[in-house]
Simulated assay, not measured.
Amino acid sequence: MSPLSRLRLADLLPVATIGLRTRPGRAALSVLGVAIGIAAMVAVLGVTRSSQAQVLAQLDRLGTNLLTVASSQPKGAPEEQLPATAAASIRRTEGVTSASGTAQIPDAHVLRNDRMPANRHGGLDVRATDPELLSTLDGALLDGVFLDAATARYPVVVLGHQAATVLGIAEVTGYERVWLGERWFTVVGILRQVDLAPEIDRAALIGFEVAKSEFGYQGHPSRIYVRTDTALTEQVENMLPRAANPQNPGRTSVSQPSDVLTARQAVDDASTSLFLGLGAVALLVGGIGIANVMVISVLERRGEVGLRRALGAARRHVAAQFVVESVLLGAVGGGVGVLLGAGVTVALAVNRGWQPLIPPEAAGGGLAAAILVGTIAGLYPALRAARMAPTEALRTA
């Protein structure tokens, strides 16, 4: 009785790489197919994680404890007035750390000079506000100063970031003026962009006192910004309608501007699922490419298989040879794909000013998926090679 054939592990790798070494072009194309799929998946996850980290950092910086109180109205309609006591009542509400009222001045336009027609105001608003607005919004000045108790009674204006851009004013020189209503106002400050209050970005801000004297402001705010104790934000949000308008709380709406950023992150998550699906399709195509290459390899190497079987190689050894070859194709493709995906993530994140983040599960999972695809793709060709009878393989070679 002849002894059982044995194949040492040290010999398996050289035998399994014969096809790769003799047909490098075909092997490279198979590796590329898998690499594209893995690179797509790693890049999508990496870019998404970097983007989400940026959004979360922005939320942490801006705070999720900012609430906006206004009258309930259709989107795009002019702001309605709230009771004159609304801001003071809100400040007395438990959990409120600061509150600042603003009032949209109707029919007042912001123009670069008094020669421009009123319909060329560029969609900019005039808003009256108090000196606490900047601290409540946690805003910052690009140049100049904000309104204070002294300047709020004089014809001076602080421009939102977008308003200053539209008007072509980049800095505060002391000589820059804009035409509000029927008189000149001196620009004393320009705000940086306020992410959670876009209406402030496109507004010209004046004090309540000058709004009364120049525009007939009656003391009724139309929008109030409220900063709360973070732990009590939800509780405060439920109390604000009655605090702002005790007689008709149903006509008052309270919104949380940071929800916009959260919604944007949800959209990014939905897009991520789509792109991951596309990456999975690309990986599937790569796996089919490996399977195709391995089937052709088996057909082309019938003589080699028949000779090895005739010399005593067992079926399991032949099967192991082709499975290992397929796994190597998948592993190399996965490794290249992970590197490509990481490179794309870093390049895009640096270009956008994000911190590059490559999830370990994306890199590890991508490599594992490539190896799994390679294994599955090689099973059928390996079993087909193992079932070849030595005589038939040699005769048809």
Rank of each mutant, 00 (worst) to 15 (best):
V338D: 01
L137T: 01
V295N: 06
S51L: 15
V373T: 06
A28L: 15
V332C: 01
F185A: 09
Y225W: 15
T136A: 09
A40K: 03
N248P: 04
A266K: 13
I224T: 09
S255F: 11
R23H: 12
R153F: 05
G279A: 08
V346S: 04
V42W: 01
S326F: 03
G312V: 08
Q52V: 13
L4T: 12
G219I: 07
L329R: 00
V338H: 03
S5K: 08
P74T: 09
V47C: 13
T262W: 10
I38S: 03
T233F: 05
T396K: 13
G63Q: 03
V293W: 00
A244Y: 07
T48Y: 09
T173S: 15
R49E: 15
S89F: 09
E325T: 05
N238Y: 12
A43T: 06
E199K: 10
S72A: 14
P360I: 13
S273L: 12
A10F: 10
R308W: 04
V267T: 15
G335T: 10
A389T: 11
L339S: 11
R192F: 07
D268T: 14
E392V: 12
I105E: 04
V267P: 08
T230W: 12
P3I: 11
L299D: 04
G19N: 15
L232G: 03
M294Y: 02
I376R: 02
T97Q: 12
S258I: 07
A40M: 08
L278C: 01
A362L: 08
I169F: 04
M116D: 11
Q54G: 10
A331G: 06
V344S: 02
D107K: 14
P359M: 09
G95P: 05
W184I: 04
L133A: 07
A342Y: 05
A313R: 00
L276M: 12
D130R: 08
E182A: 14
R384A: 05
T129Y: 07
L137Y: 00
Q193D: 14
D269A: 13
A393R: 02
Q193P: 09
A108M: 14
E176D: 14
E182R: 15
D229N: 15
V15F: 11
A16C: 07
G277Y: 00
R183P: 01
A170D: 14
L137F: 03
L339F: 11
T48V: 15
T396W: 10
D148S: 07
G219Q: 09
E176W: 01
F275C: 04
R227H: 09
P117W: 08
D269K: 10
G168W: 03
P155I: 06
V110Y: 05
N351G: 11
R177H: 12
L278V: 13
G189T: 00
A108N: 10
G37W: 02
D138N: 15
S273R: 10
T233E: 06
R92T: 14
P3Y: 13
K212C: 06
G366W: 00
Y217C: 05
R227D: 06
R309H: 05
A211C: 09
A150G: 06
A152N: 14
A203F: 08
G122N: 11
Q355H: 11
E300I: 00
G364T: 10
F215A: 10
S222W: 01
P257I: 02
L62K: 04
A369E: 04
D148L: 05
